[in-house]
Amino acid sequence: MIEARELSKTYGRVRAVDGVSFTASAGRVTGFLGLNGSGKTTTLRMLLGLVTPTSGQALVDGRRYRDLRHPARQVGAVLEQGIGHPGQTGRAHLVTQAVFSGAGRSRVDALLDHVGLGHAADQRVGGYSLGMRQRLAVATALLGDPSILVLDEPANGLDPEGIAWLRGLLRDHARAGGTVLISSHLLAEVAQLVDDVVIIAEGRVVRATSLVDLTRGSEARVRVRGGNPGRLWHVLTDAGARITTDGPALEVAGLSPEQVGELAFRAQVPIYELTVRTPDLEQVFLTLATAR
């Protein structure tokens, strides 16, 4: 389990992270989301002992990262895309990291196959594509067979097949009882992967909840397209609806689809389309992240 307890970090007069608290639990995938400059990466680096908090605590299984006896066996991390010396082969990189971390070399070849780099194990990392480097970074994180994974934008550079592979790997890790904390800008992919969501804006947590509760608590809209949009607009607004336009269609908040249909019928406006649009993760995220 990962815990952030009132984490804050100040650089001069800039408060990059301000009292951030959340938990990433075992057996679940937690998405850590925020706009650029929101404090995501600084928070992750504090969790991993790479940045010293100005105040607060970052705990891994109840301890600070620097107090862990075998950190590589407890936490695997992907924080940078440029992993690996360009002159080393993929296999040599993993062997080197295994020696440095005390993880042992026995898993190197199996991990290369596991992340889809078995065919490129003896190629120099400098010749790897961005997606291949990301796979190598994931393999490095898995070297010590850790129960906790902390991943900052791990899908960058991956093609659709690679993204599906990563999603399956992380879901399997959580199902086996592991903890996954992932930051990503690919919100459509995050929505297919995570169980819980932590949204940060301007250095503060604005929402921490399950994905189900996050989207359930947001207002659905009714999309309606009719033969007389102007008359329909007036009828619906008179009934208390809040309306925005999407081309010839109206996006209606505050009324159910049944109410919209009934009002259109009474106004003798023919309806060509009537659908309910449930807010997705991207819509909710943008609303929360830009509201401050």
Score class of each variant (00 low, 15 high):
residue 110 A to H: 15
residue 146 P to K: 07
residue 20 V to T: 03
residue 135 R to H: 11
residue 14 V to P: 02
residue 108 V to A: 05
residue 141 A to Q: 09
residue 279 P to W: 08
residue 138 V to Q: 04
residue 149 L to K: 11
residue 164 A to Q: 12
residue 155 A to Q: 08
residue 249 A to H: 07
residue 78 V to L: 15
residue 160 P to K: 10
residue 160 P to G: 13
residue 171 R to C: 07
residue 256 S to C: 04
residue 12 G to Q: 14
residue 127 G to P: 08
residue 271 I to M: 09
residue 251 E to N: 01
residue 137 A to W: 00
residue 75 V to W: 08
residue 196 D to W: 10
residue 116 G to V: 02
residue 246 D to P: 00
residue 203 G to I: 09
residue 263 L to W: 13
residue 174 A to W: 04
residue 272 Y to H: 15
residue 156 N to Y: 08
residue 127 G to Y: 12
residue 2 I to T: 08
residue 126 G to Q: 06
residue 223 R to H: 12
residue 224 V to T: 04
residue 209 T to Q: 05
residue 184 S to L: 01
residue 55 S to C: 07
residue 123 Q to L: 14
residue 14 V to H: 13
residue 111 L to S: 05
residue 229 P to I: 06
residue 67 D to R: 07
residue 108 V to L: 05
residue 161 E to M: 11
residue 222 V to F: 00
residue 166 L to S: 08
residue 249 A to T: 04
residue 108 V to T: 03
residue 162 G to A: 02
residue 5 R to A: 08
residue 66 R to Y: 03
residue 245 T to F: 07
residue 251 E to C: 01
residue 48 L to Q: 09
residue 48 L to C: 14
residue 57 Q to L: 14
residue 66 R to S: 09
residue 242 R to F: 05
residue 69 R to P: 11
residue 93 H to S: 09
residue 82 G to N: 15
residue 243 I to C: 07
residue 267 A to M: 02
residue 169 L to M: 10
residue 152 D to C: 09
residue 122 D to Y: 06
residue 61 D to M: 06
residue 10 T to K: 03
residue 82 G to V: 00
residue 244 T to L: 05
residue 95 V to F: 13
residue 30 T to S: 06
residue 75 V to N: 10
residue 262 E to W: 10
residue 134 Q to F: 06
residue 40 K to Q: 11
residue 105 R to Q: 14
residue 60 V to F: 00
